[in-house]
Design a protein around this nucleic acid. Structure first.
Lengths: 210, 210, 210, 210
DNA sequence: CATGAATGAGCATTCATTCAT
DNA sequence: CATGAATGAATGCTCATTCAT
């Protein structure tokens, strides 16, 4: 699996919609060849089979997300602010690449079976959040929770499922606005929760209220 | 797709792990036949093809979830309490059936392409939450949000991804305890949020505070 | 590789000429399917791939030869007489199945790479001769030689190459007569040699004549 | 097919073992490239395809054999003596080049389908013997046989199969000694036969003795 | 009803060969 | 001259599905 020439790489994106629509197994290499204009044998010359096509496309998406989130996370604001930025960043990239996202969800099983992708997946989606949760406790901007890893997972789920859903809806005219709207809704949820404000907090492991 | 004789139905569950592990496309009917002990042709006699196997398995899971959540939701407590119950109920069923859950995620793409399943998916996971959000606003137990459908999606994501993750981890010795722990963490997140208590609320679309 | 139903087995012989003509690598499974009337997938249902087709055909030939030679060899005549009978028997079978013989030669390399065939090859062609050589020394009908295994090899070569050559020439109208003619010529060679009768014997390891 | 630069020619021999082991069809040009160190495209620059590689290697072997046998045959000794010399010469070359020999046998089918090779094959192996048989009858050193061409074929078979077998056994430490041993055994066989000396001669077509 | 046997349709992958540099 | 890159053409094999019993 040599490094792809830039031209081929860009052509290959033409396959994303196909794969998003039908799943990788439902997509013949021949279809990919047609959709991208790259001859079948040339795809095989550069990539190690069908999985590698998906791997290439998703790696790229995951890199973009990891990159954007990485930037968002590395400001010197407090963790809560950075979490908000990270949510926005991730949603922006996701909405920017709806086909890749759909391909990712549609072939999530396969993606997790590809070791490289599984790692990239964790690194892009889960780890920054986990880190932020820790940071937030340290700088006092986020409260401590009883089960940080489950919470990180849930936050990851909250963001990702919303983003995915937006991606599945099909292209939207104003992605930035969408991203902002989603981002705002999600941050409202994960930062302030849904309980009515005057209520007593429900804290995990909290003693039963009298 | 006649109703399956009970014996076959139960044997068929033996295929869940296989499908969870390899995805439906990576699983030959022949493999399913071997794993379940049901002869290939007999599977075809009772079910309309490979997809129908997945459909059967997942319908069942979805029904179980919908059922459990349905029960949880129909108590006469306030919406917030019912939401907590729903979360717990969903997680319990998911943890009780880790292979089915993994099969579901792994073939999410296909699942959403099968109309019946897509519907059942919505009905089991999304709709009860959406309803609860509305109810909560009405009975004052949950606060109003600017974008209820996005929030419902996120809540759904928070619960589901956490549950899925638990399912992927492999069977746990004490599923009920796990479910409780997860449930508690998730409710803490979606009801109270992560922001430190003394902070001003970040409310979506709220006017800047002076 | 289940046991072939008799009908298929017989149809399969229709592929012998093809393979003889073009070699196995030059013969597509599809060609074999056409030539035999057996659908491609059915061939695969019964046999483990292309090699197995050759293996089946040649095993059969080898069995026939081993059988005929076995019968010839098990009379209670002296070894020399039995050798003559064995030569005749081998040639008869070879001439009776020219295509199989040509297939065998044409794909000799592959045949020797298929362990089962390599064994059958030895058993059909080489071992009976080796045995006869030993027997002949014991019963006094054949002379002792310095290097029995090389001689056995050579005798095997003398018979086989002649027979093969006849097979390659294409079908002859009177195979039995051919076999007799070849048999007679070969026996004359291997029993009496080519040296003129009045000459001193050239015996291996014999001291140089003065 | 230009004349190969000497260096390439010699590198090309590195492919003989490969081809001997797997057959030509089982050997990718790429494998040959790797084994010889000659880049794939360079092979194509100098030779007309895969067959030409085999043709080159085998032509060479055949030329060597034809040459050595030619020398052996052109002494002015009697035919019988020259036959002995020819046998020794042929075996020497064969044992000197075991891989080429195995490649030859393994792809005998293909070799006979390449017209140039088929001719060279005859010229190297068969014709000198045939000639010697005729010469021997003329000079009285070999007896007349009823079916000279069959006998020539058998003699060719006796020599070649023994030689091949030696080649297949793998490299031997002392090839010259091997050749001498084989040669002696084979000459004993084809000149004096295996019948015990005191026996009546079995002469093809000889009238029954009273 | 259940199923062993049979097969049509499909497709990923391979590889010999070409060609621009 | 030599060769890395590219590809057209080919094919072995798989597997979901059917059907006769």
């Amino acid at each position: 699996m040599r490094k792809l020439p830039a031209k081929l790489a860009s052509q290959l994106y033409g396959a994303a919609e196909l794969i998003a629509e039908r799943g990788l197994d439902g997509t013949k290499i021949e279809d990919i060849a047609e959709a991208t204009g790259i001859p079948k044998a040339t795809i095989y010359y550069h990539l190690d089979g069908k999985n590698a096509v998906l791997e290439f496309l998703l790696s790229d998406l995951l890199d973009m997300i990891a990159g954007a989130v990485g930037v968002a996370v590395s400001s010197d604001a407090d963790a809560r602010t950075r979490l908000e930025a990270a949510v926005a960043a991730q949603l922006e990239v996701m909405l920017e690449h709806p086909y890749l996202c759909r391909a990712l969800v549609g072939d999530l099983g396969r993606a997790t079976r590809l070791p490289d992708l599984a790692l990239a997946l964790r690194a892009a989606f889960y780890e920054p959040i986990e880190q932020l949760l820790t940071d937030g406790v340290a700088d006092g901007s986020l409260r401590e929770v009883a089960d940080p890893s489950v919470v990180a997972l849930s936050v990851f789920g909250a963001i990702t499922v919303a983003g995915l859903s937006a991606a599945v809806e099909g292209p939207s005219p104003d992605k930035t606005a969408d991203a902002a709207r989603f981002s705002s809704a999600i941050c409202g949820l994960i930062l302030d929760g849904l309980a009515t404000a005057d209520d007593n907090m429900v804290v995990a492991d909290a003693p039963p209220r009298p």
